[in-house]
Nucleic acid binder design. Structure first.
Length: 782
DNA sequence: AGCTGTGGCAGGGAGG
DNA sequence: CCTCCCTGCCAC
């Protein structure tokens, strides 16, 4: 086991060091021609030099002992105490001789100097190592929800007082602390007491960093009362990023509670939804419903502070419902992070909030440090290619089969033995190979698991393997990755493109008609002689067998009908009647709700070939708009603010970007919007051609008694949206359907949905370096 | 403070 | 009108 020495400075010039006791070391540093000494505490990592120490520890104590461990910078790695001076000598030597690119046998100090963080992450493995052998259910998880308000005119958002705090934990215990009873300061004191008494390992909340902990810390500060909820009695700390509120998507606030892990269910939900795109919103209530929250639920749309005043009993139920929801969401989403923690040298709280590149890198680093091998610096450059996407047919089609290449990029990496050029130890592919094998094993055991709980655990395990496996490719093209390799990333995507083109050829060879292809999957019309699941599966299997070893094409969906519109934009009608719509042109959260509804109904009608329905739909919407038969939520547009106002204004000034309604409307309403916040606005004025950024108001300002939305503009929006259907009809039919001018009634007779064959894009016979004979043989081309 | 990628569509503003 | 460029959102 390694011992790590660290200091406060990124690269202190250490000339000597002396061990004082089990947790302190005295460093002698050169500073301005004179030697100064500094005593450094390196708890808890010395702890790890003798793992046998852990044997007698119970969980409560070692978690406490791991308190506050990530605030130091790195210096060197060595295995035995006797190596300390040797490590320092070599590093000093290194600093003198700039020619040596690598320290034989030791971690390259230059790299550590440039990027101290990764080793900091490595240090965190202390936590994760200790999670080994634990079950998710062993954790004591506490849920928290802080109710604030009501918003006052003068106060900033965070100065709103706390009304109540709800807490619950995995033992079934729950409580609502009420500021009415003992005042806000009393509530905070009670909260501190309760948390330390219940002593949770994990504190869970929904937007817990942005909201609950931020509020608690601010109000504690206001009352000049420490929020001592650390396991060692220390205060919770808010780590404010240096660039907070500058050029980032989210407010950078992270809270650090010694000896406890903080998990934000909204982040977990974001990751969960990223791959599924099935959720309308990531609100607590929406998520809880998605995960099957049962029973009668308290619904309240206004600011909960008002409910607290008007109906305390219901408000009480509402805040408790919040913590129940948090627990439910966490029950589903956090186990995979928990099991990841057993594989990755990062602590649970960190695993739950960091991205996958960090996790891959931590694994690579762990092995490099273990082998005491130098670590490369990130390479410069960019990736030039990505996935292959194309649409061959537009219109409505039947008997659709979706065939996917299983784990396309991981398979290519393994089969083509791709690894970053800087990975001298060859850890990259070995790691991936192991993870794939482990995942298969977990999936096999899952199928054989006897209990529901056992299956759930193995499912969490295999899904955490999956997260890692799928990140290997992305890691290569990540500009800040230590082991990045853009050329190799390109090699992977180009190989993927070649495979897809080969699959397209094979499908056509078997008389299937390809409708759409995107990266690793193909939608095609099954050939006439292929009827039913078995026949379709057989066909896909046959095509799969023509592919290289280890590249598997699998049937992954079959649909009664498909509407193909543009690349990455289509709709599917399942054999069970479910309608799925994909693509930013057809479904988008930024699109006005009435247009989303219109599109969904129109697509549905089109798939049913209900032309009369389509016409009625258009006419109805047209009339509703013209007569203001709607509410602001129907026609407002909701956008997420990504840049701070300062950046927006600067870039406008520099002419780098144009005025945007979302920012302008917030500015005019005097609202301070921070990155990550959403703004809902609608368009005012009287003509369709108005400049939106100058004619818009906040959605909440709309008054149904004096509707001032721009009817001409919104009729125009309807028309623009209807125009998307032009491609599905011939011009006369299109005009006939999408008009309100039908004095003599509408007759759908003779209207046919048009199918169009898209001109295939110039498929470059890619002059890749990959287009070698060896590659062609691998691909199976003669 | 921490941060995976490319490809694609829509909508708006500015300027020709 | 058109084209260019930007942002935002989405597919994979």
């Amino acid at each position: 086991m390694n011992v790590l020495l660290y200091g406060h400075n990124p690269a202190p010039s250490i000339v000597a060091a002396q061990q004082l006791d089990d947790s302190h070391i005295r460093l002698y540093k050169r500073r301005d021609e004179e030697i100064v000494q500094e005593d450094v505490e390196f708890f808890p990592f010395l702890f790890l030099s003798q793992p046998s120490f852990l044997a007698g520890y119970d969980r409560k104590h070692w978690l406490k002992d791991l308190a506050g461990s990530n605030s130091f910078r790195t210096l060197a790695v060595f295995t035995r105490w006797s190596d300390l001076w040797e490590a320092i000598r070599i590093i000093l030597e290194k600093e003198r001789t700039t020619t040596a690119r690598r320290l034989e046998g030791y971690t390259d100090a230059e790299s550590l100097h440039v990027r101290p963080d990764p080793v900091g992450q490595y240090l965190m493995q202390s936590g994760s190592t200790l999670f080994k052998g634990m079950e998710f259910t062993d954790l004591r998880r506490m849920q928290i929800s802080v109710l604030t308000g009501p918003p006052s005119r003068s106060a900033r958002a965070f100065d709103e007082p706390i009304l109540a705090v709800a807490l619950s934990d995995t033992t079934g215990w729950e409580i609502v602390l009420d500021a009415h009873k003992s005042g806000e300061a009393g509530l905070l004191a009670e909260l501190t007491h309760v948390i330390r008494e219940r002593d949770p390992d994990v504190l869970e909340g929904h937007r817990i960093f942005e909201h609950d902990l931020a509020v608690l810390l601010r109000r504690s500060d206001h009352h000049e009362r420490p929020l001592s909820i650390g396991r060692d009695g220390s205060e919770a700390r808010l780590l404010q990023g240096r660039w907070a509120g500058q050029e980032s998507d989210h407010e950078a606030s992270l809270a650090d509670i010694a000896g406890r892990h903080v998990v934000d269910t909204s982040l977990l939900a974001e990751v969960y939804d990223f791959s599924r795109r099935s959720l309308d919103s990531l609100d607590l209530g929406t998520l809880a419903t998605h995960f099957g929250a049962s029973g009668r639920r308290v619904q309240f749309s206004g600011h909960p502070a008002f409910l607290w005043k008007e109906d305390p009993r219901r408000a009480h139920t509402l805040v408790l419902q919040n913590v129940h929801d948090i627990r439910l969401i966490s029950d589903y989403l956090s186990p995979s992070s928990f099991y990841l923690t057993q594989m990755v040298p990062l602590s649970y709280g960190v695993v739950a909030r960091t991205g996958s590149a960090v996790k891959i890198e931590s694994l690579l680093l762990r092995e490099y440090l273990r082998q005491k091998h130098s670590v490369p610096r990130p390479g410069h450059g960019t990736q030039t290619t990505g996935g292959y996407a194309d649409v061959f047919l537009t219109g409505v089609f039947e008997k659709i089969v979706l065939a996917d290449v299983e784990s396309l990029y991981p398979s290519i990496i393994l089969q083509r033995n791709i690894r970053p050029a800087t990975d001298e130890l060859g850890i990259f592919s070995a790691l991936l190979r192991d993870l794939v094998a482990l995942r298969l094993e977990a999936k096999r055991s899952m199928a054989a698991a006897a209990t529901v709980a056992g299956r759930a655990k193995l499912d969490a395990l295999q899904s955490s393997f999956k997260i890692l496996i799928n990140s290997f490719y992305g890691y290569l093209a990540y500009s800040r990755a230590l082991f990045n390799d853009f050329a190799k990333a390109d090699e992977i995507t180009k190989t993927g493109q070649a495979l897809l083109r080969k699959i397209l050829g094979q499908i056509e060879l078997h008389n299937g008609q390809v409708v759409e292809v995107d990266t690793d999957g193909v939608y095609f019309i099954a050939p006439d002689n292929v009827e039913g699941v078995e026949a379709e599966t057989l066909l896909v299997d046959r095509i799969s067998s023509s592919l290289p070893e280890g590249i598997e094409l699998i049937p992954s969906g079959r649909y009664r009908k498909m509407l193909s519109y543009k690349k990455k934009n289509y709709a599917l009608l399942g054999y069970d009647g479910t309608l799925t719509i994909r693509g930013s042109a057809l479904v988008s959260r930024s699109m006005e709700r009435f247009l989303r509804r219109f599109l969904r109904l129109a697509v549905s009608n089109l798939l049913d070939e209900n032309i009369a329905g389509l016409h009625t739909l258009y006419a109805t919407f047209h009339s509703d708009i013209a007569h203001h038969r709607w509410e602001a939520l129907d026609f407002c547009r909701t956008e997420t603010i990504h840049d701070p106002f300062s950046v927006y204004e600067r870039e406008i000034g520099e002419g780098k970007r144009n005025p945007a309604a979302a920012y302008e409307v917030a500015r005019r309403a005097g609202r301070i919007v921070k990155p990550g916040e959403k703004v809902s606005y609608y368009v005012t004025g009287t003509s369709a051609g108005v400049k939106v950024s100058e004619n818009c108001r906040l959605a909440e300002e709309w008054d149904p008694h004096f509707p001032d939305e721009n009817t001409a503009y919104y009729l125009g929006r309807l028309e623009e949206t209807a125009a998307k259907f032009e491609i599905f009809f011939n011009p006369e039919d299109f005009r006939k359907i999408f008009t309100v001018d039908d004095l003599f009634g509408f007759d759908p007779a003779g209207v046919r949905i048009v199918t169009r064959r898209m001109v295939p894009e110039e498929a470059p016979p890619s002059p890749d370096p990959q287009e070698t004979d060896e590659f062609r043989i691998w691909l199976g081309e003669s």
